[in-house]
């Protein structure tokens, strides 16, 4: 299988800040590859290096078989890039934005319409509306259409779902999945852990370092302990109590429950007595499956 991206030992520093530290990974053809990590983890810097907008201080970046340093001109023609803040002209209409990007990339909307029709059809009824007046979800779809209009081989999406409502987010992922049939490789970054499950493979990234690369299911399974979920109405007291319990290793709030790990991966009824003494009588503890976020937490703790 052809490697669309091959990055080896990429490092980048801005003054005092080490944005990326020895990052290596490769992306396969027609893959949806996700970079999952919080703000400031280095996702945008990495994407800018991939799109030839930045040069790494160290390391080699090969994209579509070309060197991002020396062959950037040729490379740029084959990349569709959607930067963090959707790259749209707010004072131009939907139609004008799309036409503009088509012309700039030396093509026409007609020529590649089949590729974007699925996405663009959602916004076509509003094609006369100025991009600045669209909702987040609509902007996102327009930006995606613009990034796709020249039929790139590689689509680079930097946080395409940030600030977009849940419905649009889920639609967006469906659209990305459909693009696979056109053999378009997609790399996407997101701060949302739950979106990791939508990717073929993901890299968890934190402080400029990759913590883990694998398919999301395997990453989840990498969780090294047995995870328990504890529930009680008074969450603050519960967390506090669990943290102080001698057998507890970690305790983190997780939605409406607390995710806990214990030494020996088990607990006995004495914990209920313990909690009862602290005035928590209605706690419920059960085994639960670790999610990708739990694994991320574990990896982060290990890295520190």
């Amino acid at each position: 299988m052809q490697k669309i991206i091959e990055a080896s030992d990429i490092s980048k520093r801005f003054g005092e800040t080490q944005a990326l530290k020895d990052i290596s990974f490769s992306v396969n053809e027609s893959e949806i590859f996700g970079f999952i990590g919080p703000d400031g983890a280095g996702k945008t810097t990495l994407f800018r290096i991939i799109t030839t907008l930045l040069l790494p201080d160290d390391g080699e970046m090969k994209v579509l078989g070309m060197d991002s340093k020396t062959e950037f001109k040729e490379l740029r023609k084959n990349i569709g890039y959607m930067p963090g803040r959707f790259s749209l002209y707010q004072d131009l209409s939907v139609e004008e934005n799309l036409n503009f990007y088509a012309t700039v990339f030396g093509t026409t909307v007609k020529e590649n319409y089949d590729l974007i029709s699925d996405i663009y059809s959602h916004i076509e009824p509003f094609k006369k509306r100025l991009a600045g007046n669209l909702s987040g979800g609509m902007k996102q779809k327009l930006a995606l259409s613009c990034a796709l209009i020249h039929k790139p081989k590689l689509l680079v999406l930097d946080e395409p779902t940030t600030g977009v409502d849940a419905v649009s987010r889920s639609e967006f992922w469906e659209m990305l999945k459909k693009l696979k049939q056109y053999k378009i490789t997609i790399i996407v970054s997101t701060p949302y852990m739950d979106e990791a499950m939508r990717c073929d493979r993901v890299a968890l990234i934190q402080n400029g370092k990759i913590l883990s690369i694998d398919n999301p299911e395997k990453i989840k399974q990498g969780y090294s302990r047995k995870l328990f979920s504890a529930k009680a109405p008074e969450k603050y007291k519960l967390i506090d109590a669990l943290r102080k319990y001698p057998e507890t290793i970690t305790a983190y709030p997780f939605g409406d429950s607390v995710h806990v790990t214990f030494t020996g991966d088990k607990y006995d009824s004495s914990i209920y007595t313990y909690l009862g003494k602290l005035g928590i009588n209605d706690a419920v503890i059960s085994v639960t499956e670790a999610g990708i976020e739990d694994r991320f937490l574990e990896l982060m703790n290990k890295a520190e």
């Binding site: 919080p38 983190y252 982060m300």
Partner: peptide, 10 residues
């Protein structure tokens, strides 16, 4: 809490 890492968020 938009955009922070999982530990900070917790």
């Amino acid at each position: 809490t938009g955009g922070v890492d999982p530990i900070t968020r917790r």
